[in-house]
Design a protein around this nucleic acid. Structure first.
Lengths: 206, 206
DNA sequence: AAGGCATTAGGTATTTCTACCTATTGGAAT
DNA sequence: ATTCCAATAGGTAGAAATACCTAATGCCTT
């Protein structure tokens, strides 16, 4: 056991109190921190984007069901890995969940070790996502220091234009383009066009 | 019906002859070209990577089963969209198939329209993949015209190095680096470092 | 009103890149 | 053997980019 999960939290949403408690006990028995919720709305009220971990989500619930919450989270850009749990073997439901971005889909009754394996896999994925996302967030912060005009210049440079071509495209002097370029390089803390292109592309397809 | 599927083929692998025939009739009734196979090996013998379409694959078969074929195809880099078909609702099987890259997973007995909808969606995905892949293949062909030394220079340029730095890294004269760069630009048919970076990155994460 | 910043632009100097030229060495193919 | 090409490197020239400087205009905030 190399890492004891840090601040990662396993969120559990299930209307069945006995199930919530037993899952919580199971998770805490392997030193995972768990927070349980009786319904989708409770979870949404307490969850914040920056929290790390994964979500164990029962499909069948009164009020908003698990599938609806899953689709709401994914359409809201929250990429917390979701392990769906269902009491009856419904293949179309499983297919729909996975195609909507669920990380996994398991049936009750489940083996304890099986659940833990999938939780650990989900937590691994979340850690990987977070590493990637924080990297992207840093780049995004750099670009936010640029003015609109500077962003125009960035995109024209990335598209392969010379300062002279950019000047023509923007209707300004090549000299001014060079000034913008110098400010861009300083603000992004880079020293080559290659780095500018890579930074920009990283943000575009993130 | 805007497009009549061109040369796209729906491959059907199922050990049940009656099922093969009925699926083939259904597909041909909407002007889709179909080829059927009684077992996984037959399909593998006749399939070539360049063929476009999708694969309807029965899970339960004597000899190599559908799941094994799916995993074989995906590990072999063949990204033909695969619609798995199974006679009994087995959720873990569906989850496994989708996590291994199956495009969809449906149960028998299925509604005819439902099957056609999924086939059309699979064909759409394949067309999209093919457009993307042929684009990438063109870029790859360009890079294959480069020598090993030129590829080293490409990677050092993309990493943001100047000719002088590259020369130091390779232990050669900056002049020679410039010669390599000129040859690279000519062979790749580009006119800026920005284009070189984009071309290289497109191949790296493809 | 004063300061800060974005945008504009010029000057000058240096470095870097690109485009031509020639030329040698060594290996591979004809 | 001769031809072809990769890799090496030099010269010269021009284009492009970078690094400094100053400076005007306009907008926003204090």
């Amino acid at each position: 056991m190399s890492e004891c999960a840090g601040q990662a939290t396993v969120f559990v949403v299930d209307d069945d109190e006995a199930m919530r408690d037993s899952i919580q006990l199971l998770l805490e028995s392997v030193h995972l921190s768990a927070r349980t919720f009786a319904c989708a709305l409770d979870f949404m009220k307490h969850f914040e984007q920056k929290q790390e971990g994964c979500l164990l989500l029962d499909v069948r619930m009164p009020g908003m069901n698990g599938m609806e919450l899953l689709e709401l989270l994914k359409s809201g850009g929250i990429d917390l890995p979701v392990v769906m749990i269902t009491g009856h073997g419904d293949v179309p439901l499983a297919v729909r969940a996975l195609k909507h971005g669920a990380f996994d889909f398991i049936q009750k009754p489940f083996n304890a070790q099986e659940l833990l394996d999938r939780v650990h896999a989900a937590l691994d994925l979340d850690r990987k996502n977070n590493r990637r996302n924080s990297e992207v967030a840093q780049y995004r912060a750099l670009f936010q220091a640029l003015t609109d005009r500077e962003m125009e210049v960035v995109d024209l440079v990335v598209a392969g234009n010379s300062s002279k071509m950019i000047a023509k495209a923007l209707g300004i002097s090549p000299k001014t383009v060079d000034i913008h370029r110098a400010n861009i390089m300083r603000k992004l803390n880079i020293r080559s066009v290659a780095e500018m292109v890579q930074l920009r592309l990283t943000l575009l397809d993130a």
